[in-house]
């Protein structure tokens, strides 16, 4: 597999703040590669470096075989970038925006229509509407269409699903999946841990550092402890009781249950006895498989 992005030891500082520390990774042709982490983790800074909009202080990076510092013109011809903030022309119509981006890259809407058809067809009925008047979901689709119109080899999407409801998020990922047939490499960032499952490989990022890189399966398998899912009708009471139990190693609420790991040698019986003594009733407890978020929490705690 050909390497599309290759980064080694990337570092970036803003004053005293280290936004990125020793970041190394490789992304291959046709991969959907996700950077998963909270706000302030460094995702946007990294994306600006990949897209040649910012120069790293340390390390080496190659994008599509070129150096973004000296050969940015070559790179910019072949990447599509969708920044986190809506940055199309609000006072141009939907269609005018698309035609503008196509023209800038020396192509036409007609020539590459097949690339954006699945996405653009949702907003085409509104093609005369000003971009500034679109709803959030429609803006997102237009921005993706504009980033794709010149058939880029690398698509860089900075938090395309932030603030978007669960159904629209899922539809957006379906659209990305459809782009695979054109062999476009996709680099995407998100704060939603569950979206990791939609990527081929992900990098977990926190405080400017990569915590782990791998396929979603590999990352889940990295979880090193036995994990229990515990439920009780009184969730908060259950959580407090588990927190106060001496044999608890970690305890986090997870949807309708609480995820628990125990210290070495602590038995399930001991914990049931303790919960009963604490007056928590209707407890169920079973072993469960760790998800990406369990692993993220484990790695954060270790730091």
């Amino acid at each position: 597999m050909e390497t599309v992005v290759e980064a080694a030891g990337i570092g970036k500082k803003f004053g005293n703040l280290s936004a990125l520390k020793d970041i190394s990774f490789q992304i291959g042709t046709g991969e959907v590669f996700g950077f998963i982490g909270p706000d302030g983790a460094g995702k946007t800074t990294l994306f600006r470096i990949i897209t040649s909009l910012m120069i790293p202080d340390e390390g080496k990076i190659k994008v599509l075989g070129h150096d973004p510092v000296t050969e940015f013109e070559e790179i910019r011809k072949h990447i599509g970038y969708m920044p986190g903030r809506f940055s199309l022309y609000q006072d141009l119509s939907v269609e005018e925006n698309l035609r503008f981006y196509a023209t800038v890259f020396g192509t036409t809407l007609e020539e590459n229509y097949h690339l954006i058809r699945d996405i653009y067809s949702h907003i085409e009925p509104f093609k005369k509407r000003m971009a500034g008047k679109l709803s959030g979901g429609m803006k997102q689709k237009l921005a993706l269409s504009c980033a794709l119109i010149h058939q880029p080899r690398l698509l860089v999407l900075d938090e395309p699903t932030t603030g978007v409801d669960a159904v629209s998020r899922s539809e957006f990922w379906d659209m990305l999946k459809n782009l695979r047939q054109y062999n476009i490499t996709i680099v995407v960032s998100t704060p939603y841990m569950d979206e990791a499952m939609r990527c081929d490989r992900v990098a977990l990022i926190q405080d400017g550092q990569l915590l782990q890189i791998g396929s979603p399966g590999t990352i889940r398998d990295g979880f090193s402890r036995k994990l229990y899912s515990v439920t009780a009708p009184e969730k908060y009471k259950l959580l407090l009781a588990l927190k106060s139990f001496a044999g608890t190693e970690s305890v986090f609420p997870f949807g309708d249950s609480v995820h628990l790991t125990l210290k070495e040698g602590v038995t399930v019986q001991a914990i049931s006895d303790y919960l009963e003594k604490s007056g928590v009733v209707g407890v169920t407890m079973r072993e469960t498989n760790a998800g990406i978020e369990d692993r993220f929490l484990e790695l954060m705690n270790r730091k």
């Binding site: 982490g37 603030g163 704060p191 908060y236 986090f252 609420p253």
Partner: peptide
């Protein structure tokens, strides 16, 4: 949307404050 973009540990601490 009080927890948008917040890391997973803080998100849970935030919900404990809510409780």
């Amino acid at each position: 949307e009080p927890t948008g973009g917040v890391d997973p540990i803080t998100r849970r601490q935030f919900w404990e404050m809510i409780y």
